[in-house]
């Protein structure tokens, strides 16, 4: 029995390899189809939003991008306030979330005792599983009063008095506004960035780290000179994953942003964002108003695309500097 199966007939092998090749081809087509499906969906969505927004884009052209007027009664629409709100809240979120995520990831890979790593990283990943509406409600009912009573008066009295950047931190302590939205977003994107960082920090070969320690490096030196350069591109990838999430976040932001189209210099004042404008107004919007909201959706595509492009560019510059 075993002798027969060990030496199959030559004709049989030929047949097998031919079917294998056919299966391989089919499999390749299937994979290509999967990849193209994503591209087609993306392109379709982008074109559909562009088409839906054509009325307002034809009417106002570039003025739509640079006007901060949003007047549904007189059918005048400008996207500046939502674009600014989206970028500012996402930037605040990144500024807060990146250092904290970095700390979390380092602690979990380098410093924490082994028994602690599992529970802490699961807890952080659970943050990612909380629906955004819950973040919104937590933000509105728990965090907003805290901001209004504690953090914002303190900011007014401290940072608000510094000459140039003071204007950013002066304003009525409403609790709602760009800063609050940015902080809530920071909590939301924290798990995404920190889990990517933790994963890639674990890929650094122990040999490299141990050699560095053997040469007398401190933990910080090992992290800054060995771990971070080794994982740089993946870390930046993780940061931009978080940024992508922050740019498109809707419900949580709508609850705490204050939804006002008036542009102000202060981070404590209410603002609006692209996605929250759409969520707020789509229900009752008709004609040009609806078109303006769909055009806003297209702009979110463009903004996200530009951000990703910048990320790619940064990575390439880094690679060039390292002479790779």
């Amino acid at each position: 029995m075993s002798a027969i199966s060990a030496e199959p007939l030559p004709r049989d092998t030929e047949h097998r390899s031919r079917t294998d090749a056919r299966h391989d081809l089919l499999f390749r087509f299937l994979l290509r189809f999967c990849a193209l499906l994503v591209l087609a969906a993306l392109l379709g969505a982008a074109l559909a939003t562009l088409w839906g927004g054509r009325d307002v884009l034809f009417k106002d052209g570039l003025h739509f991008l640079f006007s901060s007027e949003w007047n549904p009664v007189e059918n005048k629409f400008g996207a500046l306030a939502p674009i600014a709100g989206t970028l500012i809240t996402s930037l605040i979120a990144l500024v807060l979330a990146v250092p904290v995520s970095f700390g979390i990831a380092l602690f979990l890979t380098e410093i924490a005792p082994r028994w602690m790593r599992g529970p802490v990283s699961s807890a952080i990943e659970l943050l990612a599983a909380i629906p955004s509406i819950i973040y919104g409600m937590w933000g509105l009912f728990v965090f907003v009063p805290f901001m209004a009573n504690t953090i914002e008066p303190t900011l007014n009295d401290t940072l608000g008095n510094i000459p140039v950047i003071g204007a950013l931190f002066q304003g009525p302590p409403l609790g709602l506004g760009l800063l609050t939205a940015g902080i809530v977003l920071a909590v939301m994107i924290l798990p995404f960035i920190s889990s990517v960082m933790r994963e890639v920090f674990q890929t650094v070969p122990a040999r490299l780290k141990e050699s560095s320690y053997a040469l007398g490096s401190t933990t910080w030196e090992v992290v800054w000179d060995i771990v971070l350069p080794y994982t740089r591109s993946a870390v930046i990838g993780g940061i931009f994953l978080g940024l992508g999430r922050a740019l498109g976040e809707t419900m949580a932001v709508t609850f705490v942003l204050g939804n006002s189209y008036n542009l102000t210099a202060s981070l404590l004042m209410p603002g609006t964002s692209i996605s929250s404008s759409i969520a707020n107004e789509f229900n009752e919007a008709v004609d040009l108003h609806r078109s303006a909201l769909i055009a806003l959706g297209f702009l979110l595509f463009v903004v996200t695309f530009i951000v990703l492009l910048v990320a790619r560019f940064m990575l390439r510059q880094l690679a060039r500097r390292e002479g790779r």
Binding site: V73, N280, E284
Partner: peptide
């Protein structure tokens, strides 16, 4: 003017009656 959504000269916006109440 008047409309289901207008350009509010001042203030903050709450989503729905529940948002304004909150």
């Amino acid at each position: 003017g008047e409309g289901t959504a207008v350009q509010w000269p001042t203030g903050i916006g709450g989503k729905g009656n529940e948002g304004v109440s909150a």
